[in-house]
Design a protein around this nucleic acid. Sequence first.
DNA 1: CAGTGAGCGAGCTTCCGCTTGACTT
Length: 778
Amino acid sequence: MVENLVIVESPAKAKTIEKFLGKDFMVKSSFGHIRDLTKKEFGVDVKNNFEPDYIVSDDKKAVVKELKSLAKDAKTVWLASDEDREGEAIAWHLAEVLDINDEKVKRIVFHEITKNAILKAIESPRPINKNLVDAQQARRVLDRLVGFEVSPVLWKKVKPQLSAGRVQSVAVRLIVEREREINNFKPASSFRVNGIFKIVDKSGKETELKAELSKRFSNKADAEAFLQRSLKAEYAVENIVTKPAKRSPAPPFTTSTLQQEASRKLGYSVSQTMSVAQRLYEAGKITYMRTDSVNLSSLAINTSKAKITELYGEAYSKTRQFKTSSKGAQEAHEAIRPTYIDKETVTGTKQEQRLYDLIWKRTVASQMSDARLEKTTITIGISKTDEKYVASGEVIKFDGFLKVYTESTDDEEEKKNGQTILPPLEIGRQLDCIEVLAAQRFTLRPPRYTEASLVKKLEEQGIGRPSTYAPIITTIQNRGYVVKSDRPGEERKFVTLVLKNDNIKEETKTETFGQEKSKLFPTDIGMVVTDFLMKSFKSIMDYNFTAKVEEEFDEIAEGDLVWNEMIGDFYKPFHNLVEESLQHSEKANGERVLGSDPETGKQVSVKIGRYGPLVQLGETTDGENGEKPKFASLQPGQSIETITLDEALSLFRLPREVGEYEGKKVTVSIGRFGPYVRHDNKFISLSKTDDPFSVGIDRAVELIEAKREKDRKAVIKVFDEDNDLRVLNGRWGPYVSYKKKNYKIPKSTKPEELSFDDCMKLIKAADENPKKGRRKKQ
DNA sequence: CAGTGAGCGAGCTTCCGCTTGACTT
């Protein structure tokens, strides 16, 4: 029997705290929430003051049972869940479920896992804050009402299995609207002019100085006129301005900033970052990784100071406490930092080491001095015209925190503007101009979201929580609203004018732009659902909806508002929208008429069908004449919103019969797995460079023969005893194939030397004890 | 592995936030 039972949310936290507390304390974990609204029913009694119907989740039954029996025997039960809305609710649910005497229960809180903080917390217990619990109940009930009332409207009006929610629908809206901004974007061009000057220093060494003209020209004629004016011009330094500047370090990591930096610097996906961080946390190497706080414990600040002084000297140390600026932050934890800041590196996988390194640097840099810079601007005058060239540069006078860490940005343009060191010059110096280059530049369309930049945007709007950023991104992809994908760049021509050796030369060059890697694209269904929700549930889709209800949750937490009343005020108009939409909304399928087929005059349209987006030739009403419309699926990368009539029509040109080979038809088409050639009931994939619309019989035969050759090579051995048994060479090396199942060959044996009996032994052994993780999902 | 798009009806789907494993590749 234990005197004191302490319950926290996370088992790793329990382990740490137990060490601080000594023998009389047993520390256990609830593994997060233990109860939730029932899923089988609606879970909220809307006719009875929105009474919630809570049940212990299936996967928590064992935990609850254990905690219950421990609590029964303990003298005091300390509920030590986090000090935020959700944590307070967890404490309350525990108190309700554990079924123990109120006097035995004490609620304690701490914001950092240090011995001092824990001992202090034990000294000052408090009752459960019911107002805060009510704020959580309001949050939970509101999310259930929105999710479980709006989703069924989508099932009826758009497609079964779809979902809508306070957070996910707005996340999808962001991506849809960005995509439309990009589709509607019309790039404008202007001419940017750079002069390259020759500088000779005292020792006779030559360097080049690049300076940009302070003016851009909106068209080629103006740029050309400027170059004409510049012919035989003379150049001189008109002014040099030097200004001191400073740069300060970024605050320590929160979940969102860690996800952003790990994405930019290490290329990790949001969920990858979280699982690597989880492992570091469980190994006791970093503090809790789901946090919205930039706060550091005084212990952490002091150890950083000592470490920085030791490594870089006192001048580099500057202790700082940061304040959070993000909307809706609840700051139940510390910032994400190394548990022991004096440890510069850790053992573990490469991934863990790299993430730890990032966290260490960010934390330490946050406690370092500002960097001091000197910014210099040189203005160069032109003898024959009023425009000026400007060159700017930056010199680091004292590196401060930059010695350790610099935060990255999402802005690609910013990266190019790297700091340059300017050569020493003085006012009045004459400069030789090597060349003047005027190049046509285009305005940039808005960037598509990456996982991490979406998280950043959501956090700015106060939507979602540290524990949900990664799941949100998974959800909107699983629902088919959004896909993460790459897109090849497009080519575009641009004009350059070069003035060199008193001669102006025009040239047209090509550049690629708009290349995308791992970006979030909305699907057709994502766009149709967003449009539907915007029409019927505008208030829920409002970017400020979460912020608005959060204010009310805060009032509930303060005791100034009663939660059921707040929900009641929300529900009445909301439920009316639901009813209204169910009764009056048209079915939404995103149908768009593209025009008519020049050959038949029939209408060509696109819409979302049962199996996805399709193009339709002819109308269903034509059926009266006995003619059914023709259908074809859209290809990956095509969208019902942007597809053109020509693109749509060409989808009907497949499958194409390209000829005959060995007396059998050869056809080309596009299937689920891409373009293919079909011959004698065999399918052969086209290569990336083949165009399914133009591939001819010669190329098709070439592919068929190549495939046959490959298949021949793939067979290492066949057996007379049993035709089903073969030794094959596959993508991952040789293997044994028998009755459609594949078997690994031990590394020690040579595949050519396997006998029939050897193979059968292998098969028997593998079938008899299937290894864990090799079984197929049912 | 390489389709599908008629209509009906039964039975199912769905939210957000707090936590880890247990899965499979």
